[in-house]
């Protein structure tokens, strides 16, 4: 396949496309519905939130829910920005670290031969299958023993080695042609250069995909704040939003929760929009047939 870069859209409209478009369009609409719903839901006034059957689109949009949310957060001792800062720091650290470790490891697992490689992959396979909640208590003990309770690393380190990300990225590294790597070796590149200059650029789409997934996990994670952090000022925004929703339980809580969901969702959407371009390029440009 010739290199076509980012121009994946055909230039002209052909009649043969119509039947495919006919199938794709309704499905695409369908896929986009939840996002429309979330945005609409946040602006609904009280009586529309509880309407039955639930309406999809908002009729009289108000920013009422957001003001309520702000009011709740003002009454708390710690400012919202503090939680936001925590969340951003934790998410940034975790995503960067885990992507670095994951790509390194998957490069080694798929392209370098060494003893114990298969064993480790199998262990990873088992770890994928295991429920994360079930290891909470041993994890807590590890963190307590290292003395990391209440530190930033209690948020970061448990999530850094993510088996699903390794599983996904390794599949993409497997597809990098060996001849490309051999050629680089012949030209005098060492393993690190091969990793940095050849493997990483090629698996960019996989990295973008993994980034979206890891970001998801970290951004919405409440367990670390719940169990590993006692200091209120070191907890994350997700945790805070959740407490707000719980504190304002009942009828008023619905609106607050809808607003909080939208606020928590927006970073996801932004990252997705940034990443989607490189995700969509997939592996078309591997350089070698």
């Amino acid at each position: 396949m010739a290199y076509r870069g980012r121009h994946i859209n055909p230039q002209r409209f052909e009649r043969g496309q119509i039947k495919i478009l006919l199938i794709l369009l309704p499905l695409a609409l369908f896929m986009a519905l939840p996002i429309v719903f979330i945005i609409n839901h946040a602006f609904k006034p009280m009586e529309e939130l509880f309407a039955f059957p639930p309406s999809f689109f908002v009729r009289n949009p108000t920013a009422d829910n957001f003001t309520k949310l702000l009011k709740f957060s003002r009454s708390a001792g710690i400012p919202l920005t503090r939680y936001l800062f925590n969340s951003l720091l934790v998410t940034l650290l975790t995503v960067a670290l885990s992507l670095l470790l994951t790509t390194c490891a998957s490069f080694a697992f798929s392209k370098i031969k060494f003893r114990g490689r298969n064993l480790m992959l199998q262990i990873n396979q088992i770890a994928i299958m295991f429920v994360a909640t079930a290891v909470l208590i041993p994890r807590y003990m590890v963190i307590a023993n290292i003395g990391m309770i209440d530190s930033v690393f209690a948020h970061v380190l448990p999530l850094v080695a993510m088996p699903v990300a390794l599983f996904l990225v390794k599949q993409f590294v497997d597809q990098v042609p060996d001849s490309l790597i051999e050629a680089a070796h012949l030209d005098g590149a060492n393993d690190f250069q091969v990793y940095w200059r050849i493997v990483l650029p090629i698996i960019k789409p996989a990295i973008a995909t993994a980034m979206v997934l890891v970001f998801q996990q970290v951004w919405t994670n409440m367990e670390t704040s719940n169990y590993f952090i006692n200091d209120e000022s070191r907890k994350t925004l997700t945790f805070y939003m959740n407490t707000l929703v719980n504190a304002s339980n009942g009828v008023a809580g619905q609106g607050v929760s809808a607003a909080a969901t939208l606020i928590m969702f927006i970073p996801n959407l932004i990252l997705f929009i940034i990443c989607q371009r490189s995700v969509m390029n997939t592996m078309a440009t591997s350089g070698i047939k």
């Binding site: 262990i123 290891v135 850094v160 080695a161």
Partner: peptide, 26 residues
């Protein structure tokens, strides 16, 4: 080469061993 391979995964292995494998087997 094997050494390089191990070197590349050591950080990941440590992370996985401490926060995944050890808790799972515990």
């Amino acid at each position: 080469e094997a050494m390089m391979g191990v070197l590349f995964c050591v950080p990941w292995i440590i992370g996985a061993a401490v926060f995944l494998v050890y808790p799972i087997f515990t």
